[in-house]
Simulated assay, not measured.
Amino acid sequence: MSDYRDRIDALAARAREDRREFDPPANPPAEERALTYLRDGVGEVVAVYVETRTGEFAPLDRAEMSDLETALNDWLELYARCHGRAIDAEFTVREVAELVIKTRDVVESARLLTAIPERDRSVAWGSRNS
C-alpha cells in the first residue's frame, strides 16, 4: 500500500457514486457534464499516477492500480454517455497519462481515445467545396 491509498480510495468512491447516480441526458450532448467527468475525474486519476511516477517513485500495489483504472474507465464511459454513446472503456492509466502528457489536454486525449465526439472531417481537413 502506498501513501496515495487515501486519494485513490476517494477517487474510486467518487467514480462509483458518479456511475450510480448517472442519469442520461435527454438531449445529448451534455457537454459541461462530460467535461466535468474528464477534468475532475480522469484528470485527477492521471495526476495521481504522474505524481507516483515522478519525484520520489511511489510504487502502487495491484489493488491501487486496479482502483485507479476502474475509476478512469468509469469516467470515460460516463463522458461517452453524456454524448449519447455507450462504450466499454478498457484503457490503462499509463496509456491515458502518456496521451495527456503528449497532448497536454485531457479533453483532446479523451476524444482521441474514444472517438467521441466524432470529428467533422470537412472542418478538420478544410472544405474543398468552398
Rank of each mutant, 00 (worst) to 15 (best):
M65Q: 14
A15F: 11
T103A: 07
G126D: 14
L113V: 02
V106E: 05
A58Y: 03
E95K: 06
A86S: 15
I101C: 01
L99R: 02
L78D: 03
E90H: 10
S130L: 14
D3R: 10
S2P: 11
T54W: 00
P29M: 04
S109F: 01
T92N: 00
A15P: 11
D120R: 14
H83T: 00
A47S: 10
R5K: 13
E31M: 07
T36N: 04
L38H: 12
E17W: 11
R62E: 15
R5H: 13
L76Q: 03
L11W: 05
I116Y: 07
E31D: 07
E95C: 06
R111W: 02
E77V: 03
R19M: 10
D105T: 04
E21K: 15
R111S: 03
C82R: 04
P28A: 05
D3Y: 07
E95G: 07
V48R: 08
G84M: 02
R111Y: 03
L38Q: 09
A10F: 09
R81F: 05
T92M: 03
I101M: 10
Y4D: 07
D3G: 10
E44V: 09
E98Y: 01
T92G: 14
A15C: 11
I87Q: 00
L68R: 01
E56S: 11
D105M: 02
A47C: 00
A71P: 08
E32T: 09
E108F: 07
R62M: 06
G43N: 06
H83K: 06
S122E: 15
D105V: 05
D67H: 14
V48G: 00
D88P: 03
D6R: 12
E90A: 12
R5L: 13
E98C: 04
A97I: 04
V42L: 03
R5N: 08
E44C: 09
E31H: 08
G43F: 01
R121H: 12
F22N: 07
E69N: 07
A97E: 01
L78M: 09
A26F: 14
A115N: 11
A10R: 10
H83Q: 04
N73Q: 09
V96C: 04
R94C: 02
W75V: 03
D6Y: 11
M1I: 09
M1R: 12
T36L: 09
P28N: 08
V93T: 15
A47V: 02
V50Y: 02
T114M: 02
E98M: 09
E90T: 12
R53N: 15
D120W: 09
M1Y: 11
R33N: 08
E95T: 11
F22W: 13
D74Q: 02
P25Q: 06
L78C: 06
G126I: 12
A13D: 09
A86G: 07
D74N: 12
T92D: 00
L35N: 13
R94V: 01
G41S: 06
K102I: 01
C82K: 06
S2C: 11
R33V: 13
S66M: 05
D3M: 10
V50H: 08
A26K: 14
V50N: 08
E69S: 10
N73I: 06
R53T: 13
I8A: 03
V46G: 01
N129F: 15
I116C: 05
T52I: 07
G84W: 01
E32Q: 11
E108P: 00
S109D: 03
E118T: 08
W125A: 09
L76W: 02
V45M: 04
E69Y: 04
L72Y: 05
L76S: 00
